[in-house]
Nucleic acid binder design. Sequence first.
DNA 1: ACGAGTTGGTTCGGTATGCGAACCTTGTGG
DNA 2: CCACAAGGTTCGCATACCGAACCAACTCGT
Lengths: 151, 151
Amino acid sequence: MTTRLDGLPGRRCSIAGALDVVGDRWALLVVREVSLGAHRFSEILRGTGAPRERLAARLGELVSAGVLERRPYSENPPRSDYHLTKAGRDLLPVLQALMQWGDRHIADQPPVELHHHGHRITASWVCDVCGERVGRGVEHHVPERRVPADG
Amino acid sequence: MTTRLDGLPGRRCSIAGALDVVGDRWALLVVREVSLGAHRFSEILRGTGAPRERLAARLGELVSAGVLERRPYSENPPRSDYHLTKAGRDLLPVLQALMQWGDRHIADQPPVELHHHGHRITASWVCDVCGERVGRGVEHHVPERRVPADG
DNA sequence: ACGAGTTGGTTCGGTATGCGAACCTTGTGG
DNA sequence: CCACAAGGTTCGCATACCGAACCAACTCGT
């Protein structure tokens, strides 16, 4: 399974591996749409604004990558819809992080909001080990490669 | 500032806005490299594996977008290095979320690790309001647009 | 002083990828 | 019988991307 990282340029890193799967123009928007309840091709098409052929190709790749699952719901005519797998659902924190960044640095009013328990989520990244908020005070540890000296 | 969201296809959304800025093949890898201490052009080049011309263009765009800051450190020859702005530092949670996803679904051993307080970070997204972990139980609330019915 | 090497890029030509528009197949409604 | 919708595929063009070469300014070795 580590083979996904082979063949990528640059530092060997699971960020690069993740971006290789979902780092293109449409993949994360597709995940957003499906997570919002858009399961049919035409709904995802409208929601993302992607070109039809691009979307068809990307849906196939996301299914191959195990992010989406394709479920036929009609034989004649052949029709399927798309659902998130476990891996797809695990992308929600990425979307939330991107959304929070976009809210802060791109838009002045967030057009899509995430809620639970009746209130809007404003979330932080918290370390499972010590319970502390992560963000500042993080040292990056690179096992067996040079870290360029800070100029 | 909300103008960044205009002109984008699909649902008006700060995720799309964020992806419009950092959603290409190299941007987030550049942020990763700079956050790891690679500030010079050639260091970022090595770390990302991007083609030179692509990298030059992307660095310029990230500077324009306010994610990076370019600091001249020599007049003759003209030389600059690159540093994260506040907005750039605010992308670290996105990188952490991507890394965690990549660790779980792409690589079997993470080649780059984030540490603080001497232990490896395995973090969760926690709601600031109620302190609960986010992921399941999230309702998506879309203010003034149709939510496609769940099939 | 002279050539090789480093840094931080730009230019060039070919290829891959993305794009909008048109088309296709199966089924439904009038 | 015709129009229309869903879920794509095919086509031709435009852009983006890529590796390699080039370049200007300086430094280092001799």
